[in-house]
Nucleic acid binder design. Structure first.
Length: 911
RNA sequence: GCCCGGGUGGUGGAAUUGGUAGACACAGCGGACUUAAAAUCCGCCGCUUUCGUGAAUAGCGGGCGUACGGGUUCGAUUCCCGUCCCGGGCACCA
């Protein structure tokens, strides 16, 4: 064999072997795999042009899992596909004047080649692309089913409209209120669109992420992802009730029929209401502005600022009083209406009851405007003693068990005159004083219901999923518009509605409008007359909501999925970026439940286990240039300077020493000039080194700050593996072929086997918990142990066994070099192809040793070790420990008071 | 502001249910080989120079050490309470 490692030749040979044997094509119920199916899948990539480091990391994790489990006897499926619809293709089309389809297909071809060069064990016979009519036909099919079931419906939506380009803009395409391309002021327009009633499934989507007792609880998901979904769904249980009023508009009509509704989760504090606040867009605020010219601009000003950023949480609570009053539903006291900048029109009824004593925001607001604070629960601190930012409720909850009598205390404090206090209380008594908060909520809700003014209500943050996009490159929504019969679904037998692939968007409007054959070439299914085809396409999240099930049923032209899907699904392990923790994973769960309700699948949840691999980050360096633009610098062209705490405080350019700004670490991107192309790495060191380094440098879920200075180390390790094989080729060959009689193994062989099987045990554990960085370090330990032992002293069959363990445990990370050595050394001729060889199992007999070394502690401090025969009983160990010189020295001659023995590990002598 | 993670050598990171902290590497330092370089191999590598013993900033011994302050325990990186800092998520959600 070659004396040195030639990665190019080795990798080419392995890859051509795999492709010539279709090594990774899997079939259902394959009898070769006694342990049954295992479906391990990565989130499908967008074909942007080429792979980035995040992809390499994601797919290497997936591939390691694949190879290890397959060797363990599982029928493993690792498919791949393309999230091929979407906006970037349209933008590229405009820039390069090529149809999005062509651009997309070329990218797919290139990226597929890159994946093959990584040595990924993908079953390409199941490849899918979202832009293929064979795939998106089923988006359309299920859409029609959802229309039938009422899960899909049509309503008008407010969108960002660019008046120059005549197109709809996504939120992120609106910059400072202007279109990103045209700079035109963006208008809000109401246009009709289709929605999915995901809210109907809210409770069913919530339980598996929030309730550990739910039968579908997703215990194989990271806690943080479950928490994010739970927050996103946002269930809150409370009471919705009305403040009656007689406020009339200019036409003399009662506004909102004389009832101002609010929602609260704290109905128990209803007796503490001292004001109400409405959003600036609320009908009462609108009327207040119309009827008071001085107030109008002030209310307008309250609309300023976004409402979706975290910074709002610390924004100052601002408001304006109006001349309007509503009536407290239980006490009939008049309550002033304020307009507040912290009230959101989009949540609940756009109005809140103000209880300064028991709500932090209400408290801040009341403090600012001198509104009365009226506690319902006894407070720990008098209101006057509270510091700014300190909120009464925190303390109030502590004391809430003693709510009884609190109002009396408060009234008494408000006036020195006990008679007046009694009088005040009579005006506004609190009948709920004796109740616990939860009982109080029930009682208040009952009283409001009796008056016909309110009821308990569950409110959700989750909104229905709007799927209409006024874009070209997406799944056509299968609807036609007839002048006579309106919007009509396309009949099932006319699916798919095929998207023309020859359009080149120019940025103005939807090119499908101009495509006569598409737009005008439809007929009404009711009357058969000519009709216009819907030109809106579906949100690309629709495509990604079920692609993983299409992998299971490739080539089926008659059904979305078939019985093969029942074999593979639910997916055992899903792997992808944390950035999809909410939307994609929620939509896929919803879509699965819809498929279940249509009778296509029998399970409730699609992903049993979820792994979110950490992001790959790199440093960012930039500087403002003369033109005012920002210039980014390649990280390796920059020298850092460090502060006393070791953090980067500044940076200079290596070329001329000029200073640049250090921007911390962020995700790699072309625009920030900090993306590392994995192809460079693969070409220079090979796929195995790249994979090894990627896995070794950080655990899969941790973020990884890119630094390739250690790649050389991984490269060096693989060269050592090869060199060891080349140096000991003869002994290894002899060991593979020779008879194996363990009773004749030399002591050196026994010692080496003990060490390697101990390490193997750890490696197996690390594979199970998906801690692949320590799997790699385990592989290094195996080689270190072999190199540290004189090979001549090792019985050849033992040497061959040890090296075969190394090749097998290293195989999932570095399949090429291990496959190459397996064949070169003759393992293949004897035991078959490495991919199909059984995983290395720990030989418990090899772990046994005559003596065992225990850690010796005196008074809890480690002082040395004590060697005892393995299997020694407690008394023997205690005696050995007590007799040790360390105990004599550190125990200062005192007799042991107590001896703690942890079998196999440690003995602690307390004197 | 709230929720979820996290804080360990110069660096990436290890330590399975509390049991020898720093595995495995990278960088660095010293050495071997070589005409030289590369490659390779061997050794050292948390702090304490003023804690002891040494001529010694060598060895040996001791002490300290897992963000900080407490606690539980024979024993704490690990468990509990409090504080600070960093990262991610979010919804001023009534």
């Amino acid at each position: 064999m070659e004396s040195t490692y030639n990665h190019k030749a080795v990798e080419a040979a392995a890859q051509s072997l795999w492709s010539s044997t279709n090594a990774y094509t899997v079939v259902e119920n394959d009898p070769r795999f006694p342990k049954g199916q295992y479906y391990a899948c990565s989130m499908l990539p967008y074909p942007s042009g080429k792979l980035h480091m995040g992809h390499v990391r994601n797919y290497t994790i997936n591939d390691m899992m694949y190879r290890q489990l397959r060797m363990r006897g599982y029928n493993v499926l690792q498919p791949m596909g393309w999230d091929a619809f979407g906006l970037p293709a349209e933008n590229a089309a405009m820039k390069n004047n090529v149809p999005p389809a062509k651009w997309t297909y070329e990218n797919i071809a290139y990226m597929k080649k890159q994946m093959q060069s990584m040595g990924l064990a993908i079953d390409w016979s199941r490849e899918m692309a979202a832009c293929n009519p064979d795939y998106y036909k089923w988006n359309q099919w299920l859409f029609l089913k959802m229309l039938e079931k009422g899960i899909a419906y049509r309503k008008t939506q407010i969108v960002n409209w660019d008046p120059v380009d005549q197109t709809v803009l996504a939120n992120e395409q609106v910059i400072d209120g202007r279109g990103w391309r045209t700079g035109a002021v963006v208008e809000k327009r109401e246009i009709p669109g289709y929605y999915f009633k995901i809210t109907d499934y809210a409770q069913e989507l919530l339980d598996p992420v929030s309730n550990p007792d739910s039968p579908d609880f997703l215990k194989g998901w990271p806690d943080r992802v479950r928490a994010m979904q739970e927050n996103w769904i946002g269930k809150s249980e409370g009471v919705r009730f009305a403040f009656p009023h007689e406020i009339k508009d200019a036409n003399g009509k009662l506004i909102q029929d004389g009832k101002m509704y609010v929602f609260t989760t704290r109905a128990d504090t209803i007796m503490g209401v001292t004001f109400v606040a409405v959003a600036p867009e609320h009908p009462l605020a609108v009327w207040a502005a119309e009827s008071d010219p001085e107030l109008a601009p002030k209310i307008e000003a309250l609309k300023a600022g976004g409402t979706t950023e975290a910074e709002l949480a610390i924004k100052e609570k601002l408001g304006e009083p109006t001349k309007l009053f509503v009536t407290h539903p239980l006490t009939d006291v008049k309550v002033q209406v304020w307009v507040g900048n912290y009230v959101l029109i989009s949540y609940g009824d756009g109005a809140v009851m103000g209880v300064p004593a028991h709500d932090e925001r209400d408290f801040a607001f009341a403090q600012k405007y001198g509104i009365e604070v009226r506690p319902v629960y006894q407070l720990k601190l008098p209101i006057g003693d509270m510091m700014p930012g300190q909120h009464p409720e925190r303390d109030a909850y502590v004391e809430q068990v003693d709510a009884k009598g609190s109002w009396k205390a408060w009234y008494a404090a408000k006036t020195d005159d006990p008679l007046e206090a009694v009088a005040l209380e009579r005006i506004c008594p609190n009948p709920y004083n004796d109740l616990s908060p939860q009982k109080c909520v029930d009682a208040v809700a009952a009283d409001l219901a009796a008056k016909g003014l309110g009821a308990k209500r569950v409110t959700w943050r989750l909104r229905d999923w709007g799927i209409s996009r006024q874009r070209y490159w997406g799944t056509p929504i299968p609807i036609v518009h007839c002048d006579e019969h309106g919007a009509q679904p396309v009949p099932y037998d006319q699916l798919p509605v095929v998207l023309p692939e020859d359009c080149i968007p120019d940025g103005s409007g939807n090119p499908l409008h101009k495509h006569e054959g598409f737009h005008k070439g439809a007929t009404c299914p009711v009357c058969g007359k000519g009709a216009r085809r819907e030109t809106d396409t579906m949100d690309t999240f629709v495509d990604s909501s079920w692609y993983f099930m299409r992998y299971t049923s490739p080539g089926n032209a008659n059904a979305m999925v078939d019985e093969r899907n029942d074999y593979w699904m639910p997916m055992d392990q899903y792997i992808g970026g944390i950035e999809h923790a909410i939307l994609h994973l929620l939509y896929a769960r919803f879509w699965t439940k819809v498929m279940r309700d249509v009778g296509l699948v029998k399970f409730n949840e699609p992903f049993t286990k979820l792994l979110c691999q950490g992001m790959v980050l790199n440093h960012v360096y930039s500087r403002k240039n003369e033109k005012g633009g920002i210039e980014y610098f390649w990280p390796t062209d920059v020298e850092n300077s460090f502060g006393a705490d070791g953090r980067v405080i500044g940076a200079t350019l290596k070329s001329d020493g000029s200073t640049v700004d250090y921007g911390g670490v962020t995700t790699m991107s072309k625009s920030k000039n900090n993306g590392v192309d994995p192809q460079d790495l693969i070409e220079r060191y090979g796929a195995d080194t790249s994979r090894l380094y990627m896995m070794f440098t950080a655990p899969p879920e941790a973020t990884l700050e890119w630094n390739d200075s250690a790649v050389e180390g991984s490269w060096k390790f693989l060269r050592r593996v090869w060199a060891y094989a080349a140096k000991h080729e003869a002994a290894l060959r002899a060991g593979i072929a020779g008879p194996r009689d363990e009773s004749k193994f030399s002591d050196a062989a026994k010692n080496l086997r003990r060490e390697i099987h101990t390490t193997l045990k750890q490696i197996n554990f690390d594979f199970e918990r998906i801690q692949y960085n320590t799997v790699v370090s385990g592989c290094m330990k195996v080689l270190n142990a072999m190199e540290a032992t004189d090979a001549a002293a090792i019985t050849p069959p033992a040497l061959a066994e040890c090296f075969s363990i190394l090749l097998r445990v290293l195989y999932p990370v570095c399949p090429h070099i291990t496959q190459g050595l397996w064949r070169e050394l003759g393992y293949e001729a004897c035991c078959g192809e490495l991919l199909n060889v059984a995983w290395a199992e720990v030989d418990e007999k090899a772990l046994v040793s005559d003596t065992v070394e225990l850690v010796l502690q005196v008074n809890g401090k480690t002082r040395g070790t004590v060697v005892v025969p393995s299997g020694a009983d407690k008394a023997t160990i205690e005696a050995a420990a007590a007799a040790s010189p360390e105990v004599a020295k550190y125990g200062e001659g005192r007799a042991p008071k107590k001896i703690i023995v942890v079998p196999g590990r440690l003995v602690n002598v307390v004197v």
